[in-house]
Computed example of a mutant assay.
Amino acid sequence: MAKPKAKPEKLQDKEILTSELAAIVGKTPQWIRQLTRDKVLHQVGRGKYCLGEAVQAYCEHVSGGKEEEQRPRLIDFKTQHEKIKAEKAELELEQMKGNLHAAADVERLLSDLILTTKSRLLGVPSRIAAACENESAEVVEAIVQREIETALSALAKYTPDKIGGEIDHGSPEDG
Results as ranks from 00 to 15, higher is better:
Ser19Pro: 11
Ile84Lys: 05
Lys5Asn: 15
Leu122Val: 10
Gln80Val: 06
Thr28Glu: 09
Asn134Met: 04
Gln12Trp: 08
Arg146Thr: 14
Ala104Ser: 13
Arg46Met: 05
Val139Leu: 09
Leu113Trp: 01
Glu138Ala: 10
Ala102Arg: 15
Glu90Phe: 08
Lys39Ala: 10
Thr79Asp: 06
Thr117Phe: 02
Ser126Met: 10
Ile75Gln: 15
Ile148Tyr: 03
Leu121Ile: 04
Ile167Leu: 06
Ala103Trp: 08
Ser136His: 13
Met96Ala: 12
Gln34Met: 09
His169Asp: 09
Cys132Arg: 03
Ile32Gln: 02
Glu60Ala: 10
Lys27Thr: 05
Ala129Cys: 03
Glu92Pro: 04
Gly45Val: 01
Val25Ser: 11
Arg33Asn: 08
Thr36Glu: 01
Ala131His: 10
Asp38Gln: 15
Asp168Gln: 10
Ala102Ser: 11
Leu17Phe: 12
Gln43Phe: 04
Ala129Ser: 11
Glu20Phe: 03
Ala86Trp: 00
Thr36Asn: 08
His42Asn: 11
Gly164Glu: 02
Arg33Gly: 03
Leu51Gly: 00
His169Gln: 10
Pro72Phe: 09
Arg146Gln: 15
Pro160Trp: 10
Cys132Tyr: 00
Ile24Cys: 08
Asp174His: 08
Arg120Val: 01
Ala142Thr: 07
Lys14Trp: 09
Thr79Gln: 13
Glu60Leu: 04
Cys59Trp: 04
Leu155Trp: 02
Ile167Asn: 05
Ser119Glu: 09
Ile32His: 00
Ser19Gln: 15
Ala131Lys: 13
Ala142Ile: 09
Val106Tyr: 09
Gln30Arg: 12
Lys27Cys: 09
Val25Cys: 13
Lys5Gln: 10
Tyr58Ala: 09
Ala156His: 06
Leu109Asn: 07
Ile114Pro: 03
Pro125Gln: 12
Ile128Gly: 03
Ala54Tyr: 01
Lys66Arg: 14
Leu93Arg: 15
Glu94Met: 07
Ala129Gly: 14
Val40Ala: 04
Ser111Ile: 02
Leu109Phe: 05
Leu91Cys: 07
Ile24Met: 13
Tyr158Ile: 04
Val124Ile: 06
Leu122Thr: 13
Thr150Tyr: 05
Lys48Val: 02
Gly47Tyr: 07
Glu20Thr: 08
Gly165Pro: 08
Pro29Met: 12
Cys50Pro: 00
Pro4Ser: 13
Gln95Pro: 02
Glu141His: 13
Leu91Phe: 01
Ala156Met: 05
Tyr49Trp: 05
Leu41Gln: 10
Asp105Arg: 01
Asp168Val: 07
Pro29Cys: 00
Tyr49Ser: 01
Lys85Val: 03
Val140Lys: 04
Gln12Ser: 14
Met96Gly: 14
Lys78Cys: 01
Asp168Phe: 08
Lys162Met: 12
Ile114Gln: 13
Glu138Lys: 14
Ala23Asp: 12
